[in-house]
Write a protein that binds this DNA or RNA. Structure first.
Lengths: 200, 200
DNA sequence: ACGCATGCATACCGGTCGGTATGTAATCTG
DNA sequence: CAGATTACATACCGACCGGTATGCATGCGT
């Protein structure tokens, strides 16, 4: 039996259940009781590892959403040998889009829309992730620009901001329409925008 | 003294206070008590005009957000003599963007992100507004296409979907960054996308 | 002028919320 | 092996939530 104490593992379980609950209901409507029910733990455990519900939420942002963002979207761009191609492929999204993701939306976008006007600390943490993402796009565009693939007059910073914004917009609208097709159609238009930045 | 009974006026006051409260905190976190405090009314008044908090929310969607959407964005497009120009100008947003709007975001987008996965009735009502908006863009693009201003191979339906999505994405990101500049920069890129649909 | 529906105010209720105080067993330290 | 600290479980609390039952005054139809 390894039913011995494994504090960092229980912490991780709380984080995962917290992420799922927040993804489903948003942060404010997320119920601590539900998180505990999912994990089989009790309040003693949660409030031992996290001072408050808000701290749990912030930890979910950093340790779940942030890490996922880097692994899924940022690192593939940084590691890409051919930046322009990698960017277009990433927006193409060969990787299966889970139904769940369409139904519940992008966790980062969800929390931004909900928490930004309400709590400065949330806003700052979320904004940090957003900036990382934007910078990854900007860096990729700049690399492609230096490689002569992107037109020299393109403002990479503004273009990167727009890509992030449009991406989140596409996921948001697709969530409302509950339509994977709409998402693909929308992202396809975004792909067209990126292509329009390339040299002919 | 006109402190006589004016039921439709009090109903309107509840709607307006409800809209403001929902805009600030979202629907689920919106407090009925706050709405009443803002109006100076009591629960008796609210639950006389609306069966439940949810019904008030749905009425806010239809009678406040929906009407505002039509007046501000849809009708100017329908009435425009020169569709392409009107579309680009609308995205250009000469009309002052209130700080409030940047801080709190687009009411339609906020509610979509919050309520779509949670409540089907909300999702349907919101989706109806979204579709109206998209159709207004589509119609405008099609008119411009028939006038020979937009390239004939452009898919007006998909382009309209993207414009709506990117628009909401821009407001969402600007809200998170709390930056009017970011919003303008982002919308400027969207403007560039629309221009790219025109004949050279 | 009278009766009755309408328009609101007041008081109250059960339920859920995040958070805390306390207890206790397991683990680490010396 | 003893003591201290860590890692939880249990029980409980006040605050707020949306909603309801009731009361009462106004305005309207007749």
């Amino acid at each position: 039996m390894d039913s011995t104490r494994q504090p960092d593992l229980t912490r991780q379980r709380i984080l995962e259940a917290g992420f799922a609950e927040i993804h489903r209901h948003g942060f404010q409507a997320a119920s601590v009781a539900n998180i505990l029910a999912d994990t089989g733990l009790t309040k003693g455990a949660l409030y031992h590892h996290f001072p408050s519900k808000k701290d749990l939420g912030l930890a979910v942002v950093d340790e779940m959403i942030g890490i996922g963002l880097v692994e899924r979207y940022i690192r593939p761009l940084r590691d890409a040998a051919h930046p322009a191609q990698a960017l277009i492929e990433l927006i193409g999204m060969k990787q299966g889009i889970s139904e769940e993701f369409i139904r519940l939306g992008c966790p980062l976008n969800n929390l931004m829309q909900e928490m930004s006007p309400v709590d400065e600390e949330f806003r700052n943490r979320l904004n940090r992730l957003l900036s990382q993402w934007q910078e990854a796009f900007e860096e990729t565009l700049r690399r492609a620009q230096m490689a002569g693939e992107v037109r020299s007059e393109v403002n990479c910073h503004a273009a990167a901001l727009f890509i992030v914004s449009a991406w989140e917009g596409c996921t948001g609208v697709a969530k409302n329409m509950q339509s994977v097709e709409a998402f693909r159609a929308c992202m396809s238009q975004l792909q067209g925008y990126v292509v329009s930045l390339l040299k002919t």
